[in-house]
């Protein structure tokens, strides 16, 4: 069933959600369908509620799920400038892994820039989400574009942080 995570928590499919309200609904419904209270057929229900809560409480996972339920998958579409930056940063990472620490300042600078970009994308997602919720279906494509970029950046930040941790702890 499409949007079953929303349905499980008694919500209309919207990109913007009140997380406190979500939490209350989750606890309420969890009590009602706890396996000890409602028998073994409630286990499936509990699993669904867990998945629904975990997905919907996170704005990025929620947006990804929302797109998916609209039949839209993430794509390879990212702006060429971002690809260039990702490439350059990977070059710096490779040099540092090879023992050349002269690229460390570049890496730290890039880390901060990418972290900033990620925050901007999160704000952008919120703004586009509001448009989607008010019925603007064309904004869905922009949600996808924002998520594509965000995915790239978060993968990269993970790699960069791993490398910076190694070098800062030395």
């Amino acid at each position: 069933m499409p949007f079953e995570f929303y349905e499980a928590l008694g919500l209309e499919p919207k990109l913007a959600l009140d997380v406190e309200d979500l939490r209350r609904r989750f606890y309420q419904r969890s009590r009602e369908s706890h396996p000890d209270l409602a028998g073994s057929e409630a286990e499936d229900r509990m699993a669904l509620l867990n998945d629904a809560f975990r997905t919907l409480r996170d704005p990025v996972l929620r947006a990804q799920y929302f797109l998916q339920q609209n039949g839209i998958e993430l794509s390879k579409d990212v702006p060429p400038e971002l690809l260039e930056e990702v490439f350059e940063l990977n070059m710096a990472l490779e040099e540092i892994r090879g023992g050349d620490e002269s690229a460390l300042p570049q890496l730290e600078g890039a880390r901060n820039r990418f972290a900033g970009m990620q925050k901007e994308i999160d704000l952008e997602l919120e703004a586009i989400g509001a448009r989607v919720d008010s019925g603007d279906k064309t904004a869905l494509e922009q949600v996808r574009s924002a998520l594509n970029r965000r995915k790239y950046i978060s993968n990269l930040l993970r790699d960069v942080d791993k490398e910076l941790n190694v070098h800062l702890s030395n």
Binding site: L74, S75, K76, V78, P80, L83, E84, V86, F87, N90, N148, R149, K151, Y152, N155, L156, D159
Partner: peptide, 11 residues
């Protein structure tokens, strides 16, 4: 040609 795959972070 510069291409990438956001899912796995490849470039």
């Amino acid at each position: 040609g510069m291409v990438g795959a956001p899912e796995c972070g490849d470039v």
